[in-house]
Computed example of a mutant assay.
Amino acid sequence: MNDLPPLRDMIAEHGLRADKGFGQHFLLDLNLTAKIASLCGDVSDAALIEVGPGPGGLTRPLLALGPQKMVVIEMDARFIPVLEQTGEAYETPFEIVEGDALKADEAALIGDGPAVIASNLPYNVGTPLLIKWLKANPLYWRRMVLMFQKEVADRVVAPVGSKAYGRLAILTAAVASARLALKAPARAFTPPPKVDSAVVVLDPLPEDKRFADLEALEIVTESAFGQRRKTLRKSLGIAAGKAGTSSESLLETAGIDPGARAETIDPNGFFRLAEAWRAAKG
């Protein structure tokens, strides 16, 4: 790391600017990036995956953790030279994949062994990337340290009954425990976004505690929260239709009051509802 020029100098040298079209905001606060990296824990026996590294503000402290291997996935070709320069300054095997992370096969990229995913996620793809990683089968990651817009982070960790509680919290709870680890004010970024950000740490549940049918869970939660002001008797109509049954039948099988609203049902209730949907679907 001592061989590298200051990050701002490298950005200036390569003429790099954040591209709003990619949802880019450079994270240059060294104290903040060090704190984010520390949330990964001991990675000496694991591979590290970073999506959207940009000029490498978080990449440097992640490499300093000394993982067995590090893979960065970057869609913007402008950053490849500066990332190559960064990787050459460390002993850790370092691979740059230029492409769309939504299409990447991370499990194949890391090979055998566990992985930790740590990223300041581009705002425009944070939610679909999280869902993609939650649905990974088999689950190859043992921790994820992810920065989202604060509003999205709140939705990931939201408890039942809260305003932010919905589909994202339930899908997350099916696979992992999640906690809000730290907040990042807009001023920590260049250029500053219009909203604050926050880092969420996700650890997978034991395999026997996970809910496996995320496809069914996505369908029932999308239907239920698509009309969250309505009772489940009414809001589940779309999901019930896909299974060739009625909302009342699904809710009766799941042991849920048809007059309840979606935000009052805890994740376990939605897991039962997803099981009922799958059974009706056949």
Rank of each mutant, 00 (worst) to 15 (best):
E252C: 08
E222F: 14
G15L: 09
I238R: 15
I96R: 00
L62A: 01
R272T: 09
P204E: 04
G52E: 05
A279W: 10
K194A: 11
Q227I: 00
L16I: 11
A118P: 00
A136V: 10
T59I: 07
V97H: 10
V71G: 01
A176H: 06
A173F: 05
V71E: 04
A198R: 01
R17G: 14
Q85Y: 08
P53W: 08
F94N: 02
N268R: 15
E222M: 14
V97T: 03
V51F: 01
E218N: 12
Q85T: 13
T190M: 11
L273G: 00
M144T: 07
A18F: 11
V51A: 00
E248R: 14
K234G: 09
L109F: 04
E218F: 13
G255L: 01
P138A: 05
D19N: 15
F211Q: 01
P204H: 04
A101V: 07
G269Y: 10
S197I: 09
E98A: 13
A178R: 08
V160M: 10
L4P: 02
L273M: 09
R143K: 15
D100F: 07
K209G: 11
A188N: 11
K163P: 13
A153Q: 06
L109A: 04
D154R: 14
V145Y: 02
G237Y: 10
G269M: 02
T253Y: 12
M70C: 03
K281A: 14
V200D: 05
V51K: 01
D105G: 02
A262S: 06
A186F: 12
R228V: 01
L130N: 12
D213F: 10
F270M: 05
L4I: 00
L205S: 02
D266M: 12
V160R: 10
V201L: 04
Y90H: 03
I219E: 14
T92P: 12
L134Q: 04
P6Y: 08
R17Y: 14
P67F: 01
D45C: 12
D196S: 06
T59E: 04
R228M: 00
E88K: 14
A115T: 03
I110T: 04
P138H: 00
D105P: 03
A12P: 11
I36N: 01
G99Q: 05
P55Q: 06
L273S: 02
Q227M: 12
A279K: 15
K132T: 10
A118K: 01
T33P: 02
P53E: 08
L214R: 12
P206Y: 00
A18M: 10
R179H: 11
I80S: 11
Y123S: 09
P6K: 09
V71Q: 04
L102R: 06
V125L: 08
D266K: 13
G126V: 09
A153G: 08
S247P: 07
K135M: 14
G111W: 06
L134F: 10
V175T: 12
L180T: 09
E13K: 15
F270G: 01
I265N: 06
L217M: 11
P206R: 06
R155M: 05
A108Y: 10
P114H: 08
